[in-house]
């Protein structure tokens, strides 16, 4: 029983990371209508930036803030430079471009920082949170950071004019133009925010999975699973989906005999396929609208 509780809590902790990636995926999906397969590599690259800044002697939280800002700018630039020119192109061209981006970021990171696994610091420490508590300080910190991030995003979208404009652009780009919103820039902003969210997720997960250019492939897959579970149209759903996926992963790893620990990706695959088959609109999403 105690083991179960502990595993659920630990699952929620990693689930927060999946939730962040799922959220980033849903945000780009909402703004450009495509799944960004390079989202994970973008987060990985951001995390390397943070590592570099820390190596150069910056205090953790300064490096953290700087990384988020740089990632935001990077996301905006990628949208403006790489994606804007093809925004009317078919899905396959988008997928190919995302794959190109993925290859570039992956290779660039390996080139600059090599492929050796690096430890990444945690600002929270790794001591148990309370004496024989279920989770350690870093896991608790991860949960806290995610909650703060979500609160910030909620406030931004709910109460600011830019947030309103972004929601309007996602809802109906044509009408958004008709009220004078620069929809193209809203997409760039969405990309920037997604990149920043990914950066936070990367910096939070790196102390656990360690830093290396391929660290995010699995996380991305779980992020996708979370996004699909929540329905691609719903940011809140993506967060809940990510948490559920984290818990399921942890429980399966612990309680499935023999191969539990080896099934990481397979579980994500099973979740994605099962959700898509049984409830394609996700647990919280609206029905998928087919454009004819």
């Amino acid at each position: 029983m105690e083991l179960l509780l502990q595993q659920i809590l630990a699952g929620i902790a990693t689930g927060t990371i999946y939730a962040c990636i799922a959220l980033a995926i849903v945000m780009t999906y909402q703004t450009i209508g495509h799944l960004n397969f390079a989202q994970g590599e973008m987060a990985m690259f951001s995390t390397f930036l943070a590592w570099q800044l820390i190596q150069w002697g910056l205090p953790y939280w300064t490096a953290f803030a700087l990384t988020v800002a740089l990632s935001f700018a990077g996301g905006v630039l990628i949208e403006r430079i790489v994606l804007r020119p093809i925004h009317n192109a078919p899905v396959l061209s988008h997928v190919a471009v995302f794959i190109g981006l993925l290859a570039i970021l992956n290779s660039l990171a390996g080139f600059i920082w090599d492929f050796n696994v690096k430890p990444f610091p945690t600002p929270f420490g790794t001591a148990p949170l309370i004496a024989n508590g279920f989770i350690d300080a870093h896991q608790a910190g991860m949960i806290a950071v995610t909650i703060l991030l979500l609160a910030f995003l909620y406030g931004f979208f709910r109460f600011t004019r830019v947030g309103l404009a972004m929601r309007a652009s996602a809802n109906d780009p044509v009408s958004a133009r008709l009220v004078g919103i620069r929809v193209g820039w809203m997409a760039a902003l969405g990309w920037g925010m997604a990149a920043a969210i990914g950066a936070v997720a990367g910096m939070m997960i790196a102390p656990i999975v360690f830093l290396e250019p391929n660290m995010m492939l699995g996380v991305l897959l779980y992020g996708f699973a979370g996004a699909v579970l929540g329905g691609l149209g719903s940011p809140a759903g993506a967060v809940i989906g990510g948490l559920i996926v984290g818990v399921v992963e942890n429980l399966a790893g612990t309680f499935i005999p023999v191969v539990g620990g080896e099934l990481k990706f397979t579980i994500a695959l099973a979740i994605i396929v099962a959700v898509l088959v049984m409830k394609p609109q996700g647990l919280f999403g609206r029905p998928v609208l087919h454009r004819v």
Binding site: V82, G100, I104, L105, S107, F111
Partner: peptide
Amino acid sequence: KGLSGAVYGVMIIVLIY
């Protein structure tokens, strides 16, 4: 040698354009 993935990625993107 080190940047082959990046070169490949750039080639893909340029090709799409």
